[in-house]
Design a binder for these strands. Structure first.
Lengths: 246, 246
DNA sequence: TGACATAGTGTCTATAGACCACTAACATAG
DNA sequence: CTATGTTAGTGGTCTATAGACACTATGTCA
């Protein structure tokens, strides 16, 4: 595939400047919670263009293997993380004449949420450098390849926005979790404290969780463990989380 | 451009089955309110594939003219309707091996809202047949080209959803309108009646409209005319429109 | 056995939409 | 020149749900 070619070979193979159709790819913002932070998976580019810069994982559609766009996304997710499909959502497409040095290109951005301990990093045979990086740090200090900074921003905004009125963060936790852990996850993504009672009421009333019967013990009162009901994973609340008023 | 070619010429020109990159296009669901209905703009396909079937307007990216994807969308909107940019939003991309008989293809779907009387239909030099059609009718009875039925569904859902918590329908009205006209527009899109007092409070409290000073007279009490404030066009409400409870 | 820490609850307030009946202001018919 | 109809616009109550915050419960560990 394209990835193994040098730029010159690539240009020759695709004869890009003769085309009047754009190159189309898929890029992913794969989020997880690690060390109390929201982190995103980055790959160091091994080829031209933007060689050596960190980038969102992604690549070209494989017309043989992939039947649909989401097949491509699932394949990429699997290649980079070794897991599949906890949560995958198409976010937005970015296309312009100058976002890629190779010419007019379009990329379809996907957002994925995965549980930290599912991860077997860099199961990719191409042995690129792969790493988790704090989203905050990436957005403030780093210079990503192509327009990946903008793509990450949009995916991050989408995540923050959806967390307001859905139970999405459940996908960032292992199958069993306590309500406090879930609340912490919401707080990390939203970046604001969430009121305990309101939070618990919302989640419980939404009727998407069930008690597993187990308890999480520590050096204090044990907490009930919950898992998501088989049916509903994401569920819409009637209002968004409003956070403290004063 | 591609449009003037026969399938055979097209295949030859693009040598499609040699590529391992997909064809990428833009398709649009252009909505308006006409005759008390939500209607969508359709174009009759003059070429293979799906020749003779109605389709959403759209086409390939023009790598010379368009700098970005939204340029392509704006251009298509202008070509078909003679107007530009009252409201344009990217919705979702659809890509698969079999959505287009020509091979693997990706299309980026856009949603546009325009005011009915802005419209100068079929300003397109290619003199295709262009028409407005009731969305309800299209979704129930018609067979659109490619996967355009699915694309329309997604765009329609997005519209209905956004209307719940934004002032989006303002873009379907002329610059001056009465609150009752705006309410009617919401009701047409939502398909349910909306309570007058709550609606007016919501809209007025959102502080996105200003009185123009003019009045709309008829054979009854005249109504104040409003226009959108220069700053805010779309604005988010804190809750969605709930409609009648019983 | 008591300090502590975290889990989990009772209950009040504030907000904003639903509901519905009311008043206001025009055109037009008689 | 009034009566009537029709639509514009409002007042005021009801209700659902989120925020606030203090309270109780239940474990560990020194």
């Amino acid at each position: 595939m394209a990835k193994e070619l040098t730029e010159k070979q690539f240009l020759k193979r695709y004869d890009i400047h003769e085309f009047d159709i754009p190159l189309t790819s898929v890029d992913m913002a794969i989020f997880t919670i690690r060390g109390g932070e929201l982190q995103v998976l980055l790959v160091k580019r091994a080829q031209h263009p933007s060689k050596g810069l960190w980038a969102l994982p992604g690549g070209f559609i494989d017309l043989k293997k992939d039947r649909t766009l989401s097949d491509t996304a699932h394949r990429k997710l699997l290649e980079k993380t070794g897991v599949d499909t906890p949560y995958l959502e198409q976010v937005e497409s970015f296309g312009s004449a100058d976002r890629d040095a190779r010419g007019w290109s379009v990329t379809v951005a996907y957002l994925a949420l995965i549980t930290c301990d599912d991860i077997v990093l860099a199961a990719d045979e191409s042995s690129e450098e792969v790493t988790w990086m704090s989203v905050e740090k990436v957005e403030q200090e780093m210079d990503l390849a192509f327009d990946h900074q903008a793509i990450l921003d949009v995916c991050h905004d989408r995540l923050k926005n959806k967390v307001q009125y859905t139970s999405l963060p459940i996908n960032l936790l292992p199958t069993e979790f306590t309500l406090t852990e879930l609340q912490k996850t919401f707080e990390i993504i939203l970046g604001i404290p969430v009121e305990k009672k309101s939070f618990r009421r919302r989640i419980l009333d939404a009727d998407i969780l069930e008690e597993t019967g187990g308890m999480k013990t520590g050096s204090n009162r044990p907490a009930k463990l919950y898992s998501t009901k088989p049916e509903g994973v994401k569920h819409f609340f009637s209002r968004s989380i409003e956070g403290p008023r004063r």
